[in-house]
Simulated assay, not measured.
Amino acid sequence: MNNEILRGYSQLYKESLLNNVVPFWEKYSPDQTYGGYYTCLDRTGKVYDTDKFVWLQGRQAWMFALLYQNVEPREEWLEISRIGIDFLKKYGSDQNGHFYFSLTREGRPLVQPYNIFSDCFAAMAFGKYGLVTGDTESTDRAVQIFSQILKRRANPKGKYNKVFPKTRDLKNFALPMILSNLCLELEPLLDSKLVEETIDNCIHEVMGDFLDDKTFLIYENRTLDNGFSDSFEGRLLNPGHAIEAMWFIMDIAKRRDDEELLERAVKVMLAQLEYGWDSEYGGIFYFLDVNGNPPQQLEWDQKLWWVHLETLIALAKGYQFTRNPRCWEWFEKVHSYTWEKFYDPTEGEWFGYLNRRGEVLLDLKGGKWKGCFHVPRALYQVWKTFDLCEDESN
Score class of each variant (00 low, 15 high):
residue 2 N to W: 00
residue 3 N to G: 14
residue 3 N to K: 10
residue 7 R to Y: 12
residue 8 G to V: 13
residue 11 Q to F: 09
residue 13 Y to G: 02
residue 15 E to P: 05
residue 18 L to R: 03
residue 19 N to D: 13
residue 22 V to Q: 01
residue 32 Q to D: 11
residue 47 V to P: 03
residue 50 T to R: 11
residue 51 D to I: 11
residue 56 L to N: 03
residue 86 D to Y: 05
residue 86 D to S: 13
residue 99 F to R: 02
residue 101 F to Y: 12
residue 110 L to T: 01
residue 112 Q to P: 03
residue 114 Y to P: 00
residue 118 S to G: 13
residue 143 V to D: 02
residue 144 Q to C: 05
residue 145 I to N: 00
residue 146 F to W: 03
residue 149 I to E: 00
residue 151 K to Q: 14
residue 170 L to W: 04
residue 172 N to C: 12
residue 172 N to R: 03
residue 175 L to I: 03
residue 179 L to Q: 00
residue 181 N to A: 11
residue 182 L to I: 09
residue 197 E to G: 00
residue 200 D to E: 09
residue 203 I to G: 02
residue 212 D to Y: 03
residue 220 E to W: 02
residue 229 S to T: 12
residue 231 S to E: 10
residue 238 N to M: 14
residue 239 P to L: 12
residue 240 G to Q: 05
residue 250 M to A: 05
residue 251 D to V: 09
residue 252 I to Q: 02
residue 270 L to P: 00
residue 272 Q to L: 08
residue 274 E to V: 07
residue 298 L to A: 14
residue 306 W to M: 09
residue 308 H to L: 06
residue 310 E to P: 05
residue 311 T to M: 06
residue 314 A to M: 07
residue 315 L to M: 07
residue 316 A to T: 07
residue 319 Y to Q: 04
residue 322 T to E: 11
residue 328 W to F: 15
residue 330 W to Q: 13
residue 333 K to P: 05
residue 339 W to A: 06
residue 342 F to R: 03
residue 348 G to Y: 14
residue 350 W to I: 04
residue 358 G to C: 04
residue 360 V to F: 06
residue 371 G to A: 08
residue 371 G to T: 02
residue 375 V to I: 15
residue 377 R to Q: 13
residue 387 D to W: 12
residue 391 D to A: 15
residue 393 S to G: 06
residue 394 N to Q: 14
